[in-house]
Design a protein around this nucleic acid. Structure first.
Lengths: 225, 225
DNA sequence: GTAATACTTCGGCTAAGGTCGAACTATGAA
DNA sequence: TTCATAGTTCGACCTTAGCCGAAGTATTAC
């Protein structure tokens, strides 16, 4: 028994409804204050503070002080991956499915996953870029081809401006609603930012929903149809 | 708040040490009895029975009666994926790392992941098959090329004999110790079975360790070097 | 049949931990 | 300075659930 790392501590942290709501809210990729997260989780500030310190101790979130505010964000893409995988499993095991709220169809259509585009439109973009030979997956790793580099440059993304970091340029991320991959990594992040810059879409405050304008939808279809 | 599926229920189930041990034991891919799992988890049979019924209700494991025994197995590859992702995160977040037992190096070298080969040798096999063009990842999905089909046929695997099922033939699975992908899916399963058939390696009872014979190690190196 | 093994259910004990009110600290605004 | 806002810490309450002994059911062995 006791093979490998200890799963239960991390799972225990995610296993509380309030903490799960906090983490889900942070899946938007934004850094949120303790008060905002308390509100998201539906608990008082004191309770949220306790949860947040536990999540921080467990290495799932990172704090950042800013004046009298304390902002929290997910500790990394690996955390987001686990959360997405759990969502996929929760959605799959039937009775665990949450009653689909009014936002549910919108979420399935286009949403933020950590810092990149997910949902139907996220996978559509990914597939289109693969089909046209912009992405090449050499076994495990995903990378941008020369044609792909030219494409995203034409799309308005300056590769040189991307920060040097250990984070891979391209990464595949499994989508819980579509059960297929979408584009993550630094390029995935840059694509979403560019889509917002182009005013094709904007995030709906307080949710993970990404809402496209009619014009943006049309342009998206032209580009990734 | 409350976007998407409810994570916390599934995470709560995994968040108990006894249940986490049970699930980890089932990562061997084998079906184990309630008594065996009680022993793995370090609790009495009564306690394990309670845990097992909760895991079953939660859709994480499937029971199968066989005489007076009740065998349990993981409910599916999706569950295994979540567990592997959690292991990766737990191993990564530092203080959560379990004290490395004597079996730890062996586990990192070669182990069973649900029903396929993982660890250093698992990723080595995967990389080799990718480099030689046996596997093609068209964007998201992983598939066997013609050359790959010929290769595994030569290796002694009859593709036609694989059962018709919704499970994909090839699938990439993230490895918590190597942090890279290895081969899962039906072909991954068949490869491991064939390796055992060839007597290259055998599983160590009661653990996830796959122990190669010297001859098997040599043959493996020849084939996937 | 009787005995043994495998598992389940029940009941009670106990400990862990989620919750919030109230008091406290720290930063910023007037 | 004085007040307001953001967050933390403390203490008490209380629900939850993990645990095991004991009794109950089901299946196999003899």
């Amino acid at each position: 028994m006791k093979d490998g790392p200890d799963i239960s501590r991390v799972a225990f942290l995610i296993g509380d409804p309030a903490r799960a709501n906090i983490l889900t809210a942070l899946m938007s990729g934004r850094a949120l204050t303790a008060s905002e997260l308390a509100n998201e989780a539906g608990v008082t500030l004191q309770t949220a503070s306790s949860h947040l310190s536990k999540l921080e101790m467990g290495g799932l979130i990172c704090p950042r002080r800013e004046g009298r505010h304390k902002y929290f964000r997910l500790a990394g893409a690996e955390v987001a991956t686990v959360l997405e995988a759990l969502m996929g499993l929760a959605a799959g095991t039937g009775q665990l499915r949450h009653r689909p709220g009014p936002k549910d169809p919108e979420l399935r259509r286009a949403r933020v996953c950590y810092n990149h585009l997910a949902g139907d439109m996220g996978t559509q973009m990914f597939d289109s870029m693969c089909d046209r030979g912009f992405l090449k997956s050499s076994g495990d790793d995903l990378s941008l081809t020369d044609a792909g580099g030219a494409f995203i440059k034409g799309f308005g993304i300056d590769l040189g401006a991307l920060p040097e970091s250990r984070a891979p340029l391209c990464r595949a991320c499994l989508d819980w609603s579509e059960r297929r991959s979408h584009l993550a990594g630094q390029v995935g992040r840059a694509m979403l930012l560019r889509i917002e810059d182009l005013k094709w879409a904007s995030r709906v405050d307080g949710t993970r929903v990404v809402r496209f304008t009619p014009a943006g939808l049309h342009a998206f279809g032209q580009t990734f149809g």
